[in-house]
Each structure stands twice: as C-alpha cells, then as structure tokens.
Design a protein around this nucleic acid. Sequence first.
DNA 1: TGTTTTCTCTGACATGATTAATTATAACTT
DNA 2: AAGTTATAATTAATCATGTCAGAGAAAACA
Lengths: 344, 344
Amino acid sequence: MGKITMKDVAKHAGVSVATVSNVINNISNKTTEATKQKVLSSVKELNYKMDMTARSLSIGKSNLIGIFIPEVYENSAPSSLLKTNPFYSEIISGIEYEARMLGYDILISCIHSIDHALELVNKRMLDGLAILGTYDTRFWEDLKLVSVPIVLIDNYNYEAVGVNNVGIDDELGAYLATKHLTTLGHKHIAFATSEVGISEVNEKRFIGFKRAIKEAKLDQIACPVIIEAVSFKGGITIGHRLLKDHMEVTAVFAIADIMALGIIKIMHQFGRKIPEDLSIIGFDDLSICEYTFPALTTIRQDIYKKGVEVARLLIKKIDGELGLKSQELPVELIVRETTKSILR
Amino acid sequence: MGKITMKDVAKHAGVSVATVSNVINNISNKTTEATKQKVLSSVKELNYKMDMTARSLSIGKSNLIGIFIPEVYENSAPSSLLKTNPFYSEIISGIEYEARMLGYDILISCIHSIDHALELVNKRMLDGLAILGTYDTRFWEDLKLVSVPIVLIDNYNYEAVGVNNVGIDDELGAYLATKHLTTLGHKHIAFATSEVGISEVNEKRFIGFKRAIKEAKLDQIACPVIIEAVSFKGGITIGHRLLKDHMEVTAVFAIADIMALGIIKIMHQFGRKIPEDLSIIGFDDLSICEYTFPALTTIRQDIYKKGVEVARLLIKKIDGELGLKSQELPVELIVRETTKSILR
DNA sequence: TGTTTTCTCTGACATGATTAATTATAACTT
DNA sequence: AAGTTATAATTAATCATGTCAGAGAAAACA
C-alpha cells in the first residue's frame, strides 16, 4: 500500500484534484457544500494526510520555523548552549508550543556563522527565524543578508539590522536587584558580569546597577565590577576572586542566575554562610533556582512566555503584518532566601 | 532577484540541469572533470543552495529527523518536559550535534498521541524518529503503525514493537548506588521512585536496589519504597514524607537526580544536615548536579553521549543497515558530597 | 426559447530536483 | 574512413500539491 495522495482522494470522491485542493485549503465560494462533504469524508476514510513537502514546493512556504542557537566550544570540543544553559530549553519550549498552536513546526540547529544560517534558510525554505544567544558583530551585520523574518531575544541592536526583538527592561531589572540590596543596608555590593561592552544587555544592566548605587549614595569604588564568563564556571571563578580580593563585599548582584549558583557553590565550600555572610541576587529566575538551597533571590522574567511572544511576533511577521513593535516583557523582583538585611 | 535554482546554475555553466544534479550529488562516472569544475564554479559564483524541499519530494526522503517529547499537563496547562527536565535538553543536544554531522536536520515537537506522531511523519516526510520519555501502553502498541525507523531511549519494550533503543544498565546502576550506601554502613535505606510498574526502567532499578539490600543482609522492611512523581515536586513530597513517617531512614536512593534535589531542599528547610543526618544518592548526573550544594553523589550516565548514539543508530537504520543492536551505555558511580559513612 | 450571468469544477502548467531512457560525442578498431 | 564501443550530456517523465484560465452547467432574465 503506497502513499495516499490527493489523487487518491479525488478518485475516491469522484472529483478532480483541484477540487480536493480547494476543499482542503478551505477556499470559499469554490465548492458546494455537497461536494465539500464528499471530499471531506473521503479524506477521513482514506486517512489522507497532506504532504507539506509538495505543498511547500508549490507555494514557496514551508510552515517551518528555524530556531538557531550559537555553537560554542568547550574544552575545544563543539558544544551547544542548549546542553549547558537551561535558559535555552525554557525559551525553546515556549516557542515550540505557540508555533505548534499556530500551525508551524520547529527546526532546531546550532549554527556558527551567517553562511550556515543562510544555507539552512534556503535548503529548508524556512519561513522565519528565532535567533537565540550572542554572536560577534560581523554576524549581526550580515543578518541583513537573510531574507526571511527574524525575531531576536534580548538584543538591542535589532533596529539597526531591521529585525524585531523580544526582551525585557534590563536596566529596570538590574536597578530593582541592586535597589533591593541597598535597601537591605548593603554598602559594598559587587557586580558580577561578563565583559560589559560585549552586549547591550550587559550594558543596560550595568547602567541599572550604577543608578541604584548612586541613588543610595554608595561609594562606587567600594562596589567592584568583577568580570568572568556568564556560566557556572564563571561564577566559580568569581567566587574565588571575591574571597581573595574582596572580603569587604557583603552582597553580590550576579548578571545571571547560572553565575550566582557558581558563586554560592564556592561560598558554601569555604564555609561562608548565605545569606548571613553574603547576600546574593541573580537574574532570570531559571526554574532550577527553586531547586537550590538556599533558594535564589532573583529578578524574574517569564522565559517561557518570552518564547511564546517570540513565536507570535515571528508568525505575525511571516503573515505579512506590518508595523509590528518589538516586545518588552515585565521583570519582577523575587525575594527568596539568598538575600538578607545587614542592618542591626 | 529571485531564487537561484539548478536551472540558473545549468544556464550559467552551459549544461543541462541533469548534469548539474549529477555533479552536486557526486555521482561518479557521469561527468568529466572539466564540466564538473565548470558546474562547481558556477555553483559558487551564483551562491546556489539546493532546495531540500524539492529534493525531498523527488526522492521521497527529507533528511529530517523528528524528536518527539511527551506533552504533559502541569496545573491543567499544557507544558513540555523540555521546559522542566534538563535531561531532555542534554539528550537533544547530543542528537542534534551528531545528526547535523551526518547531514540531517532536526524537527522537534511535543506530541500527545500516536496520531499526532503519524501526522507529523507523513506531513513532513520525516526519515526517522527519536522518541523521548514515557507514554501509555496504547502508545507503544500503536507505534507499529509508524513506518519509519525509530529509536527510543531507556525503553525495555522496544523489541516487542520492533524498534531500537539506547539505554543503560539500569539494574547495575541502581545496584551500584545502593551498594555504595550499604558499604557506608547504612541500614535503613529508602528508595524514592515513581510507580515501579509504570516503566521497565523503574522495575530494573528496583531490582538492582533489592539485590544490593539483600546482599548486605538488610531487613527489607526497614527499607521503605516511597512513591511520588519523578520531578522536583515529587522530591519535595518525598522529603516531607520522610520527615513524617521515616525518621529511622539514614540514606535515600532517589531514582532521578531531579527528585533527589527536591528531597535535599526539604531537608535543608527543616534543618537536617546533608550528608551528616541523611545521605542521598541520585541517578543521571544532570549537569545541574554540580551546581547544587552539597554536590550530589549520583550514578552517572553520559546523557549527551546517549543522544549522539541515538542519532547514529537512527541514521544507520535510515540508511538501511540491518541487524543493528540496541545500545547499552555504561554507568558509573560518582561520589560527591551528599553521601557519608554512618560508621563510627 | 434564447441569451446572459453566475457558479462549480476541471485541465494544464508550475514548483525544483532526480533519474531512466535517449541521443550526442569521443575513442578505438580494422 | 567506416563501424563499433564506451562515455558524456540531454530530454522528458516524475514526485504531490497549488493556481488560474476557461469549460460546462445551472440559474436568471428578456
């Protein structure tokens, strides 16, 4: 038994393939109710499933969305951020769900260059792209070469390259986090981050951090900025550096939860109690934050929701809707157990 | 400027599309070196990328692999295990990498039924499937209806449905875990699991647990089996139940890391020290295990590697290789900080 | 009844690549 | 130089679907 095609359905229903096509695609004013029912019952009886491959070829649209993740190198072996960073699985989960609801499927690939991205877009006739993570400047510039709608996540350069973005108010988030620490009476607050200039997100969060510091009239010199990679390992290193060079620090604002977890780990290891000896606040509210002890105080952004919005925005763009605004989702301070007042 | 097709390349190189096709597909003994070079340089010059959609339609093969994840319901809202369980992102990461290396792309979808799976296979002409997670018996029975190669993960019923599997020696793993605890002198060891009968994996691990208990001549009655969902929440509940009903227990073997983390959380909350008051060992070695404090002692399985093996096995099947054996990957005891000798 | 209008439905072509069958070219033989 | 092979390149059909001009039928009007 071979594959059931429209031809089979047409024969079974006693009509032409064109009619079957019209019925299935629900083209109005093309078929009478009677023939429509005939076709639909044949479809059901033969258990016909449309071949999207042929459809894609015919109409030049695949109903496939590409999710691209940077390919990174870990110990000189290629690795995916999907493996190591829970942020990605959460957001992909949101994109997948919403896209599916809107009739799109998801193709996931790690990519290392724009050429690689272009190749996939052409080869698979992708209708749109969600690009996660950070790349070098070259990459963002060359993004113009991609001819399909694109939505980015947490990228502030999106306007320059003519794409849309789903992000959050990073400055506000960082401000809220730091404000929380200053309100608790901390005077020596460290900012754990990766190279500030490398991404606008870091820049914005740094600005928010500085604003809160200034507002609390704290000495900027007493509030060191410590730079390492945004990863658990980066956090580990920062933990060591804090113990070695910054014993005066009583609170840390880590630019990402995953980093905060690394810092906590080291503090535990060297017997410094959290939050008694050191308050720590993270950023993101990964679902694993709840799993740790003490539970991480953090700035919550709804990552899953972010994914949902990415899919919505992207599919609207694909459908040709114009004048779409980039989205900015709310942030919220979640006080859990890693921060404590220093007063009294 | 429209799309560059083989026709364009053919015209540019002054040959027919068939010749271009032959060159691109590297069909030997069909073209002279001279024309081959002409074609290849035209391909480069025009920056031609093959349209896989058309190719798929033509040869009836998409070079697309489907990764299916169960759609679960959390608080009556649909959710994906991808969101909540890091195990899935790690394995997907491995599948994606190896598949890409072997020339396949990855389509990811949460599915809720065999019909849904079948629809995707037909619609997208998927060449093969990697099915993750657990489903009900109906699902596995109906798997026969799917006509493309399938590889499962950690499924012991695979032979019955004629598919292959990549798994581990669950019994050995559980035995090693429990043995570790008995060796440390524990006499009251709890087994935290989900319904044992629900999956062969649980069954096997239970057998391994019992073997170690018997070998150490412990009283089975003193070693309670506590059943909750395999999730962080399930671990939380088990933690409460341990405190309420099983204060004699000095060690817990949790069937999954994620569950162990929940238990640890509750112990911390109620001031029971780990490992001093209670030893805990998990299973899986999720990468987040390292992030927690104390770092979780566990049974390591290389989840990423598992994904790689899934892709290899699946693609071999797709390529028609016969007599493929299901894979069993090694397990290993990783002693970290959550287990401690009770002796002395 | 004859003509026009409206409404269904069909047939032929298009989409981009593969491939079997066929023709053109080159390379030997004698 | 003609005939025979071997090799290279082309033509045309095929895959499953969509599109659209136009055929045919039914309905409306005169």
